[in-house]
């Protein structure tokens, strides 16, 4: 885009090096040399990718079609046994259901709340800068720091949440040990963790809206809710779609909050796919690498399908200017 090919002046001044990458037919030997240099520049990154992404990917696939002995060593090829076991295992079907529910319960509310905040911060009121910075603070929290704070807030005996309910005369709630409630509590904490990022993306998107379009709409008498719904929202669809995709993938990968808050319980009602992988492979020295790897491949396929959907949909269905 920015480069121009075969600039003769440059070639004149610099006979040692080929004047320009890919400029038709530069001096053969030099061009070859630069090709090797180019590979050399890619090499550090490629080495890391090869060792810690691509080779493990192959290894994961291999592990998933092997059995595992009690020491965690592969015990020979078993074909698709691990996979057929997955889909006849009621525990795993529950894992898929929990993962699905957790994703819905986190992605949609976190985007909705962030959108509401972002739109409110667009209105020209005083103190916007302060609010903007304040609302971005959750973004600084790690999954561990946020989960530990929520663990303290959720504490049934002395936590603030039950303290607040108490002032309204409501009995203590077992936020994390009630099987019907635990997933909601963990999801609530996760929504909080996601708001900061979503807000940054949406604010950036809102800030980049074409002022002329908004002005034209205002001149035509659109204001308030009407302006938001008919003009701003359609213009924000790229950001919203992006957040749905990224948020879904992010939620599917969630692990820390479950490990810290519920350890997958009660009754495995908060055991998501990634937590299940952890449990099979690492918890209590299970070392069930074969079965865990099959689950890891299920995760990979789900994420790849969502990514592929993004590639397909993004260009066609989403409103772009």
């Amino acid at each position: 885009m920015t480069t121009t090919t075969g600039d003769p002046v440059r070639a004149e001044h610099d006979p040692e090096e080929p004047p320009q990458p890919q400029s038709g037919s530069p001096a053969g030997g030099e061009a070859k040399r630069e090709r090797w240099i180019a590979i050399g520049y890619l090499l550090p990154a490629l080495a890391i990718f090869g060792l810690f992404i691509f080779w493990p990917l192959v290894k994961s696939i291999l592990l998933s079609v092997q059995g595992t002995d009690i020491l965690g060593n592969p015990s020979g090829f078993v074909g698709f046994v691990n996979y057929t076991r997955l889909f006849s295992d009621p525990d795993f079907l529950q894992v898929l259901w929990v993962t699905f529910a957790f994703t819905i319960l986190t992605v949609i509310p976190s985007i909705a709340i962030a959108l509401l905040i972002a739109l409110l911060l667009q209105s020209r009121i005083r103190g916007v800068r302060f609010f903007r910075t304040a609302f971005a603070l959750p973004f600084a929290f790690s999954v561990a720091t946020a989960s530990v704070i929520f663990g303290v807030l959720f504490n049934p005996a002395s936590g603030v949440l039950n303290g607040i309910l108490n002032t309204f005369g409501i009995d203590k709630v077992q936020w994390l040990t009630n099987p019907d409630l635990a997933l909601w509590s963990v999801s609530g904490a996760t929504v909080w963790m996601q708001i900061g990022y979503n807000l940054l993306v949406l604010s950036a998107g809102l800030g980049a809206l074409p002022e002329d379009v908004l002005e034209a709409a205002r001149l035509d008498g659109a204001s308030g809710f009407r302006l938001q719904r008919s003009i701003v929202m359609p213009l924000l669809t790229p950001q919203l779609f992006f957040l749905v995709v990224v948020g879904t993938i992010h939620s599917l990968q969630s692990f820390g909050q479950i490990k810290i808050l519920t350890v997958g319980g009660p009754e495995d009602r908060t055991t998501t796919l990634v937590y299940s992988i952890y449990e099979q492979a690492f918890a209590n020295n299970n070392s069930n690498y074969g079965y865990a790897s099959a689950q890891a491949m299920v995760l990979l396929i789900i994420v790849l399908v969502i990514t592929a959907l993004q590639f397909g949909v993004l260009e066609r269905k989403v409103f772009y200017r």
Partner: peptide, 24 residues
Amino acid sequence: FWFGVFLSTMMIPFESIIIPNYLL
């Protein structure tokens, strides 16, 4: 091709390849 290789690394969730990484 190399571009595709770099792009593909962003689509593979680390959690799905964490077991071999741990073993390594």
